[in-house]
Write a protein that binds this DNA or RNA. Structure first.
Length: 341
DNA sequence: GGGTTTTTCCGCCACC
DNA sequence: CTGGTGGCGGAAAAAC
């Protein structure tokens, strides 16, 4: 195990970064404008720069860390990063990531025009946290829904009144312009890009290797996908998921969901997997367990009653699946809340 | 726990 | 030929 972990740490070679992905759309440039935000740059490097020989994909990303003036730059944490690339990397990239920066800074004209040019060429512009301030300076976000860190939402809105700043979502996918909330939401957004490029299955495997949840708890409500022409599989699946999530108290089966989608069970299962990377029954089970958590925490209804309320056929099967998913029995879980510190 | 029945999943193939 | 679709059957999982 240890050996495989060590082998997996993939060396980053700046000289190779821009040639390892043959096509422009596969190149990711991370553009820093002042102090290097260690965590966010690290997230992008982890998702896009790490070698992933275990995945059976036709291509993976090229990666370039860049700044207007390449060379040593201070990083959060008190060390120095030798930024290897200049704005050329932005011109060559299909995806440009703007990690957090000083919200009181003003991006230079060179940076702004490099970003506008990249977007004009069809590149995706992606911000994490306060990176939205740099993106907003280009004017490209005007009239659009935008995510940023909740601490900066008001400031961003005040400075760019034409934006619709939404502080309640993890990220917003507006096709070629994507914005995300505070630091860790950058992980969600980077995985979302992988999902768009390679499908849910590959994205889930990347998430698993990063040892994080493939999609954050709470389902659709926490992120918004605007106009992007949603793929058929995602549209049908999403509406059935909404429908099913609204009546978890009933013992719905995969057959019921397929009927709701007006598809054969076979075809529905196929689309569901294409859209989510999981199977309908597994997803239903996860939803039921997730729905039981607040009931256990906030009510003292008997476990049997909660089992029925979230659609388990019997309390025995609820206990079994709860233990599988959470690690402890429902009663023990509740006790840990009542006892509380 | 252990055995039986039912449900789910997925490769495969035939059909537009 | 390509690509979406539906059904079959057996393995695996869940329910009982």
């Amino acid at each position: 195990m240890l050996a495989s972990v060590l082998n997996d740490t993939g060396r980053y070679n700046p000289a190779m970064a821009l040639v390892s992905a043959p096509q422009q759309t596969h190149r990711v440039a991370v553009l820093v404008v002042d102090t290097v935000p260690s965590f966010e740059v690290g997230v992008a490097a982890e998702v896009f720069a790490l070698a992933r020989p275990e995945l059976d994909v036709p291509w993976w990303y090229g990666f370039a860390l860049c700044a207007e003036h390449p060379g040593p730059m201070p990083a959060v944490g008190g060390y120095t990063v030798a930024v290897p690339h200049g704005l050329d990397a932005v011109r060559d990239a299909g995806t440009v990531i703007l990690p957090g920066c000083d919200v009181h800074g003003t991006p230079s004209e060179a940076v702004v025009s490099a970003l506008r040019d990249a977007h004009g060429r069809g590149a995706r512009l992606v911000s994490i946290c306060s990176g939205a301030f740099v993106l907003a300076a280009t004017g490209l976000l005007d009239g659009r829904r935008v995510a940023t860190h909740w601490r900066y939402a008001e400031l961003l809105q005040a400075r760019h009144p034409a934006l619709h700043v939404d502080a309640s979502v993890l990220y917003v996918d507006d096709g070629s312009l994507l914005t995300s909330a505070g630091t860790a939401a950058g992980i969600d957004l980077c995985l979302h890009l992988v999902r768009r490029d390679h499908g849910a299955d590959i994205a889930n495997r990347v998430a698993r290797r990063m040892v994080i949840a493939p999609a954050r708890n709470g389902g659709q409500a926490q992120f918004i996908e605007t106009p992007v022409p949603a793929r058929v599989a995602e549209a049908t699946t999403a509406s059935v998921m909404d429908w099913a999530a609204g009546q978890l108290d009933k013992p719905l089966s995969v057959v019921d969901m397929a009927r709701q989608a007006h598809l054969s069970v076979r075809q529905f299962t196929r689309r569901f997997r294409a859209a989510t990377g999981s199977s309908p029954a597994r997803w239903l089970l996860e939803q039921r367990v997730a729905a039981s958590l607040p009931l256990l925490e906030r009510s003292d209804n008997p476990v049997e009653q909660i089992a029925a309320a979230v659609g388990f056929p019997t309390a025995a099967s609820f206990r079994r699946h709860f233990r599988d998913a959470v690690g402890v029995a429902p009663s023990a879980y509740r006790r840990s809340f009542l006892g509380g510190p």
